[in-house]
Computed example of a mutant assay.
Amino acid sequence: MESITAINRLSALAQTNRLAVFRLLVKAGKSGMAAGEIARTLAIAPNTLSAQLNILSHAGLVTSVREGRSILYAADFQSMGDLLVYLVEDCCNGNPDICVPIAEATKCLQGCP
């Protein structure tokens, strides 16, 4: 991953509502959530949510798919995993046991429901 991609993804998460949306979508899993449900759950105005989802999508952290009249949004687990790997790829300095919890946590990214 290039530094600019990591910076864009981190910047997208560096705002209260966007971080809350992303964490909610991570919790929802690969099936994601409809925009209206996200707005109701987080008490975010629909127009504000639309802007937040656009920023997350532009950063590659969120995917969307139209299902009937709704748009379902989901966290992009591969992109999230790539960012985490980038952040810790030079970790440990000869002490691999330090990174074990991170490696274990990212295993879910390949097999989340």
Score class of each variant (00 low, 15 high):
residue 63 T to Y: 01
residue 29 G to Y: 12
residue 75 A to G: 03
residue 43 A to P: 00
residue 38 I to D: 04
residue 49 L to R: 01
residue 69 R to V: 10
residue 74 A to M: 04
residue 36 G to M: 05
residue 54 N to E: 01
residue 15 Q to Y: 11
residue 101 P to K: 03
residue 88 V to Y: 13
residue 14 A to Q: 07
residue 56 L to H: 01
residue 46 P to V: 03
residue 7 I to D: 05
residue 16 T to W: 01
residue 20 A to Q: 11
residue 91 C to N: 13
residue 112 C to G: 09
residue 57 S to A: 07
residue 15 Q to F: 12
residue 1 M to Y: 04
residue 38 I to P: 08
residue 10 L to T: 06
residue 72 L to E: 01
residue 11 S to H: 09
residue 99 C to P: 06
residue 68 G to F: 12
residue 93 N to K: 10
residue 31 S to H: 12
residue 5 T to Y: 05
residue 16 T to K: 13
residue 86 Y to R: 02
residue 89 E to D: 12
residue 56 L to D: 01
residue 70 S to M: 02
residue 27 K to S: 13
residue 73 Y to R: 12
residue 107 K to H: 10
residue 7 I to M: 08
residue 30 K to G: 02
residue 73 Y to V: 02
residue 44 I to G: 00
residue 113 P to K: 13
residue 103 A to M: 05
residue 31 S to E: 11
residue 86 Y to Q: 10
residue 87 L to H: 09
residue 33 M to W: 06
residue 75 A to I: 08
residue 50 S to V: 00
residue 6 A to K: 08
residue 19 L to A: 14
residue 62 V to M: 02
residue 82 D to M: 04
residue 48 T to Q: 06
residue 32 G to E: 08
residue 55 I to C: 07
residue 62 V to D: 00
residue 111 G to W: 04
residue 85 V to I: 13
residue 86 Y to N: 11
residue 105 A to T: 11
residue 65 V to E: 15
residue 13 L to R: 04
residue 42 L to N: 02
residue 50 S to T: 08
residue 68 G to L: 10
residue 8 N to V: 03
residue 88 V to M: 11
residue 82 D to E: 15
residue 67 E to K: 14
residue 1 M to W: 05
residue 32 G to R: 09
residue 49 L to V: 00
residue 77 F to R: 06
residue 59 A to M: 04
residue 92 C to E: 15
residue 23 R to I: 08
residue 11 S to G: 10
residue 91 C to E: 15
residue 36 G to V: 01
residue 54 N to Y: 01
residue 34 A to S: 11
residue 28 A to F: 13
residue 105 A to F: 15
residue 55 I to K: 13
residue 32 G to L: 04
residue 17 N to R: 13
residue 87 L to S: 06
residue 84 L to V: 14
residue 91 C to M: 14
residue 7 I to Y: 03
residue 13 L to W: 00
residue 19 L to G: 09
residue 108 C to M: 12
residue 56 L to C: 02
residue 111 G to M: 08
residue 96 P to H: 04
residue 38 I to Y: 10
residue 97 D to V: 08
residue 60 G to W: 03
residue 12 A to K: 01
residue 22 F to V: 03
residue 67 E to N: 09
residue 77 F to W: 13
residue 27 K to M: 10
residue 105 A to P: 05
residue 24 L to F: 09
residue 5 T to I: 09
residue 3 S to Q: 12
residue 29 G to W: 11
residue 111 G to D: 05
residue 99 C to K: 13
residue 100 V to F: 12
residue 26 V to F: 10
residue 84 L to G: 15
residue 21 V to H: 03
residue 21 V to G: 03
residue 38 I to N: 05
residue 67 E to P: 00
residue 34 A to K: 14
residue 37 E to K: 11
residue 86 Y to C: 09
residue 59 A to H: 03
residue 83 L to T: 05
residue 42 L to F: 05
residue 43 A to V: 12
residue 72 L to Q: 08
residue 39 A to T: 00
residue 47 N to H: 05
residue 87 L to G: 05
residue 49 L to S: 01
residue 46 P to C: 02
residue 26 V to M: 13
residue 93 N to S: 14
residue 3 S to W: 05
residue 97 D to F: 00
